[in-house]
Nucleic acid binder design. Structure first.
Length: 816
RNA sequence: GCCCGGGUGGCGGAAUUGGUAGACGCAGCGGACUUAAAAUCCGCUAUCCGAAAGGGUGUGUGGGUUCAAGUCCCGCCCCGGGCACCA
C-alpha cells in the first residue's frame, strides 16, 4: 500500500471487497437481533444533490455503527419514481416520463455506489413498476370493500387557459406557471381515503412514541387538531333546512351577532342563483388558488345573504353572510360569529360595521371594552340571561346539556384533520383501479384483473391527462355487468407509494401478496431518517397506511417507525441549495477531487444532523487534510513493525494520560453515536484523540502498544463515517479479517481513573481562580483550599462570606 | 394568518442534568522547511483596558427567577420548515 493517501484507489478497493463479499446483503435470521435502518427514499430527479448525500450518510453511519454493535442490519434503497418532474421533463424534452425516470435511476444508482453506502442492493425498489404499484391498487380495492374510500367533490386549482388542474407548486402569485392565467377554485369529484377514521388512534399513539422528536409529535398533534365542542343548529327564516355550526366556545353563544358560510356552502349557492350580486361576489372569491396559506392571509371579504337565522336561545334574528375565510373543508362550512371573543370575527365585524357584544368578563372583575379590543380568555358569563355568572367551563356544560335535552344540538369531537384526497388528474402515477359503468356506477377492478398497467410509451403535452386519449386504456367492460364502461383516468397521489415502501423492502419480490412472512421479521423500521419537511404529511400517511395494512391482516405492527430522526437542510450562502438560486454544489465534483470519505466526513462534522448545514468549500478541504494526516500516521506507525503486549503495571504518567484519553474518548464517542446521534462531536473527539497521539512520540514497547491501541480505536470508531479509509488502514495494521466484521471497542474503566481534579472557584458567581484538589477531598477541605487562594482572598476583601456552594468535582461559589 | 424549529467569535460549530462560554475545524496572523509556490510542521487567535499579573464586557433583543442562566419563565425582533396537488 502506498504511503500517500490516494482516496480513489482506497475507495474502489474497499467497494470491490464489499461487492464481492456481498457484505450488506442480509436475510432473515431468527437467531440474530435485527436492526432495520432506513432513509426516506429519493425521487429520481437525475442528479444526486448534497441534501441526499447528507441524509444517506447519516443513515449509513447509524447502520454501520449498529453492525459493529453486533446487530443484524438491513439498510435498503429504492426510488420514489412517480411524480410531477418526470411529466415536466417530458413536456420540455419530448421524452416519455418512464424513459426519463429509468435513465435517472441508473445515473443516481451509480452515484450512490460511489459513496460506499452499506445498502442491500438486492432489495432495490422502483415504485413506478407494476410489480410494486399493483399492491396499492389491490389495497385500494380492499379499502373500497370496507367503505374506507369514497368519492366526493373537492376544490382544486383550475387553470382556465391550459384547461387543467394545477398543483399548488404550479401556482405562482395566483397565476398558472405556464399559462400565466388567473387560477380559479373549482370543485371536481375525487377519491378520498378515510384517514379520519383513525384520527383518535393516530393521535393517542403519539404519547407512546418515545423514539420520535417532540417537535414532530407536536406538529402531528396540532395537525390532527382534536377539539371538543358542541354542534348546534340554527333555524333559517324561509328555509326548510337549518344551519349546522360547530363551536368550541358554546359559552359565548349569547354573543353571536352574525353567521357566515363558505362560498361553496349550499345556502350560498342557493342565494347566488336568485341574486346576481351574490353570484358575482362568489365568482370573485373563486379567483384564487386553493392553498390554506393564501386563504388565511388574504383580505377577509364577505357579503350579506339577505337572510337571517334564529338564535336558538334568544330567538333574535341573526344576519347571515357569505365570507371567503370560512372553509368548506373544516367543520360544517358555516360558523357562528362572536366578534367580542374571537379575533377573526372581531376583525370582520369592525370592517363591516356588525355589532360586537360582550358576553364574557374577566374572572378578576376588571372592566373591558370589547369594542376596543377583542377578549379571548375564558371568564364569567354576562349578558347571557339565565347563564349569567357561570364561569366558561360550567357554562360550556350547561349550554351543551340544554341542547342535548332539546335535541337541537349535541357535544361533538371535531378534528382539523381531513380525509386524504388521493386523486390526481395526472398521467405519471398509479392508475386508480376503478371502472365507471352507466348502470353499476364506480366498480373496483377485481383482484384477478390487477394490476391496471399504466401505458409507458406516451406523449405528454401538459393539457390534461394523455390517458384520456388512449381508447385501449379507457375502454373496459364493467367487471360487474359486462357492459361497455370507462376506466378512471386519474392516478394516485404519489404519497401512496411512499406510505408503504418501508414494509415492502422486506419482501420486494413477493408476487403472491403485498407482504409475506419476511415482513414480520423486519418490521418495524428501527431507525428512520429523513427531512423535517416530511414531519406531517408523509409520516402521518405512513402511520395511517400501516394501520390499514394491519387491519387487512398483513402485519401485527401499528407504528411503522420506532425511532425517527429528522435532518436539517443543506444551505449555501444562507439559503437552501437549489438550481433556481444557482447555489448548488455537485457531490460528483467533490468526490472526484477528494474522494467519498472526505465528503462524508465533512457532512458529519460540519453540523449536528438535526440542524441545517452551511456548506463550506474550505471546510471540505480541512476534512481532506485530516484524512491525509490520519493516513500517514497509521502507515508510519505500522511500518515500524509489530507491537508487544501492553504491560499496564509500569506505565509512566504520559502513558497513563494517553491511555485515559483513549478510553474516555471511547466512552464519549459510544454515547455520541448510540444515544445522542451527535456525529459532529464524535468526529471532534476523534480529532482530539488523534492530536494527542501525534504529540505523544514514545517509541518504547509500552509507548507503541498504547499508540496502537489509540490508532485502532480511532480506525474502528471513525469507520461508520469514513468506511473506505478505515477498511484499508485496518489491513495496514495487520488484521486478516475485514473491519466491517469487527466489534465496537469497549472501554477499560481502570484506565479512566484519575487522582486530581481541577475545581473552579467563583466569588459572587464570577470566575476568580482554579484549584487542583484530590478527587476524594471532602467538601470542607475543598472550601478551605478555595478560601486560601490569593486571588479569591483579594476579591472577598473585608466582606463577610454569607454562603458557600460546593458542586463536587466542579466548582465552589463563594457569596459575599 | 396558524403550527414547529433556530439565532453563540471573522466562519461552521462545542458547552449532554441550571455550574469554567467558545472544544474541534476553517479562515487569518507569526514562524520553520523550500530557489519559489503548493503541501507539510510549530505557535497565536471572542472583544476592550493593561508591559504583565489581572480586570471589564460578551451567547438576537428587553425584562424576570437563581448563589449561579447560552441553558428556565414572560414580551419583542429576525431567519428557516410545514400548511393537505413539490417530494
Amino acid at each position: 500500500m502506498s504511503t500517500s493517501y490516494n482516496p480513489e484507489i482506497v475507495e474502489l478497493d474497499a467497494q470491490k471487497y464489499w461487492d464481492d463479499d456481498h457484505s450488506f446483503e442480509v436475510s432473515e435470521d431468527a437467531n440474530k437481533e435485527k436492526y432495520y435502518c432506513l432513509t426516506m427514499f429519493p425521487y429520481p430527479s437525475g442528479k444526486l444533490h448534497m441534501g441526499h448525500v447528507r441524509v444517506f450518510t447519516i443513515n449509513d453511519v447509524i447502520a454501520r455503527y449498529q453492525r459493529l454493535q453486533g446487530k443484524h442490519v438491513l439498510q435498503p434503497m429504492g426510488w420514489d419514481a412517480f411524480g410531477m418532474p418526470a411529466e415536466n421533463a417530458a413536456i420540455q424534452r419530448g421524452i416519455p416520463p418512464a424513459k426519463w425516470t429509468y435513465a435517472n435511476i441508473e445515473d443516481m444508482h451509480g452515484q450512490l455506489k460511489r459513496l460506499g453506502y452499506a445498502y442491500d442492493w438486492s432489495r432495490e425498489l422502483i415504485t413506478c413498476k407494476p410489480e410494486y404499484y399493483r399492491w396499492e391498487q389491490w389495497l385500494f380495492t380492499k379499502m373500497f370493500a370496507k367503505g374506507l374510500v369514497y368519492r366526493k367533490k373537492s376544490i382544486v386549482n383550475w387553470d382556465p387557459v391550459d384547461q387543467t388542474v394545477l398543483a399548488n407548486e404550479q401556482v405562482i402569485d395566483g397565476r398558472g406557471w405556464r399559462s400565466n392565467a388567473l387560477i380559479e377554485r373549482r370543485e371536481i369529484p375525487q377519491w378520498f381515503m378515510k384517514i379520519t377514521d383513525y384520527a383518535d388512534e393516530l393521535l393517542n399513539e403519539l404519547d407512546h412514541m418515545a423514539g420520535w422528536p417532540e417537535s414532530v409529535k407536536t406538529m402531528q398533534r396540532n395537525w390532527i387538531g382534536r377539539s371538543e365542542g358542541v354542534e348546534l343548529s340554527f333555524d333559517v327564516n324561509d328555509e326548510n333546512e337549518s344551519l349546522i355550526v360547530y363551536t368550541t366556545r358554546p359559552d359565548t353563544l349569547m354573543g353571536v351577532t352574525y353567521m357566515a358560510v363558505a362560498i361553496e356552502h349550499p345556502l350560498a349557492k342557493k342565494s347566488a342563483a336568485s341574486n346576481p350580486d351574490i353570484a358575482a361576489f362568489i365568482e370573485q372569491c373563486k379567483q384564487t388558488d386553493a392553498q390554506e396559506a393564501t386563504l388565511e392571509t388574504m383580505e377577509k371579504k364577505g357579503m350579506s345573504l339577505g337572510m337571517s337565522a334564529i338564535h336558538p336561545l334568544s330567538g333574535e334574528e341573526i344576519p347571515l353572510w357569505v365570507a371567503n375565510f370560512v372553509m368548506m373543508t373544516y367543520g360544517t362550512g358555516a360558523v357562528m360569529a362572536v366578534p367580542g371573543h374571537d379575533a377573526r370575527d372581531w376583525e370582520f365585524a369592525k370592517k363591516h360595521g356588525l355589532p360586537i357584544k360582550q358576553v364574557i368578563a374577566p374572572q378578576d372583575g376588571t372592566d373591558i371594552d370589547v369594542k376596543a379590543a377583542v377578549y379571548l380568555e375564558h371568564g364569567v358569563l354576562v349578558n347571557s340571561g339565565q347563564y349569567n355568572g357561570l364561569d366558561s367551563d360550567t357554562a360550556f356544560n350547561a349550554i351543551a346539556d340544554h341542547f342535548e335535552k332539546t335535541g337541537l344540538g349535541s357535544r361533538k369531537v371535531n378534528y382539523r384533520l381531513r380525509d386524504w384526497g388521493v386523486s390526481r388528474q395526472r398521467y405519471w402515477g398509479t392508475p386508480i383501479p376503478i371502472i365507471y359503468c352507466d348502470d353499476c356506477d364506480a366498480v373496483p377492478v377485481p383482484e384477478d384483473q390487477l394490476p391496471v398497467i399504466l401505458p409507458e410509451n406516451i406523449e405528454v403535452k401538459g393539457t390534461g391527462s394523455p390517458l384520456k386519449d388512449i381508447p385501449e386504456f379507457v375502454n373496459a367492460p364493467c367487471p360487474r355487468c359486462g357492459k361497455a364502461a370507462r376506466r378512471e383516468t386519474d392516478t394516485f397521489d404519489t404519497f401512496i407509494e411512499s406510505s408503504w415502501y418501508f414494509a415492502r423492502y422486506a419482501c420486494p419480490d413477493s408476487d403472491s401478496a403485498m407482504l409475506d412472512n419476511r415482513a414480520k421479521y423486519w418490521a418495524p423500521v428501527d431507525q428512520y431518517t429523513g427531512g423535517i419537511e416530511h414531519a406531517i404529511l408523509h409520516l402521518l400517511y405512513s402511520r395511517f397506511f400501516q394501520r390499514v395494512m394491519r387491519d387487512e391482516g398483513l402485519t401485527d405492527i401499528s407504528e411503522p417507525f420506532t425511532n425517527l430522526m429528522t435532518q436539517g437542510m443543506v444551505l449555501k450562502d444562507g439559503a437552501k441549495m437549489s438550481k433556481a438560486k444557482g447555489n448548488t454544489v455537485d457531490p460528483a465534483d467533490l468526490i472526484k477531487k477528494y474522494g467519498a470519505d472526505t465528503v462524508r466526513l465533512f457532512m458529519m462534522f460540519a453540523a449536528p444532523p438535526e440542524q441545517s448545514l452551511e456548506w463550506s468549500d474550505d471546510g471540505v478541504h480541512g476534512s481532506f487534510r485530516f484524512l491525509k494526516r490520519f493516513w500517514s500516521a497509521v502507515i508510519s506507525h505500522a511500518a515500524v513493525g509489530k507491537v508487544n503486549v501492553l504491560d499496564i503495571s509500569i506505565l509512566t504518567d504520559a502513558q497513563k494520560d494517553l491511555r485515559r484519553k483513549v478510553h474516555q474518548t471511547i466512552v464519549k464517542i459510544t454515547d455520541d453515536f448510540g444515544r445522542r446521534h451527535s456525529f459532529n462531536t464524535a468526529v471532534a473527539a476523534s480529532m482530539e484523540l488523534f492530536n494527542a497521539v501525534n504529540k505523544f512520540r514514545d517509541m518504547s514497547d509500552n509507548g507503541r502498544a498504547i499508540e496502537r491501541e489509540a490508532l485502532e480505536s480511532i480506525v474502528l470508531m471513525l469507520s461508520p463515517i469514513v468506511p473506505h479509509i478505515c477498511h484499508a488502514l485496518w489491513q495496514e495494521l495487520g488484521h486478516e479479517s475485514a473491519l466491517i466484521d469487527q466489534s465496537w471497542p469497549e472501554h477499560d474503566e481502570s484506565a479512566i481513573a484519575f487522582e486530581l481534579v481541577e475545581i473552579v472557584v467563583q466569588v459572587n458567581g464570577k470566575l476568580r481562580s482554579r484549584i487542583s484538589v484530590a478527587v476524594d477531598m471532602s467538601k470542607d477541605e475543598v472550601e478551605k483550599n478555595a478560601l486560601a487562594d490569593e486571588n479569591v482572598k483579594r476579591f472577598i476583601g473585608d466582606n463577610n462570606v454569607s454562603k458557600i456552594i460546593v458542586v463536587p468535582g466542579k466548582l465552589v461559589n463563594i457569596v459575599v
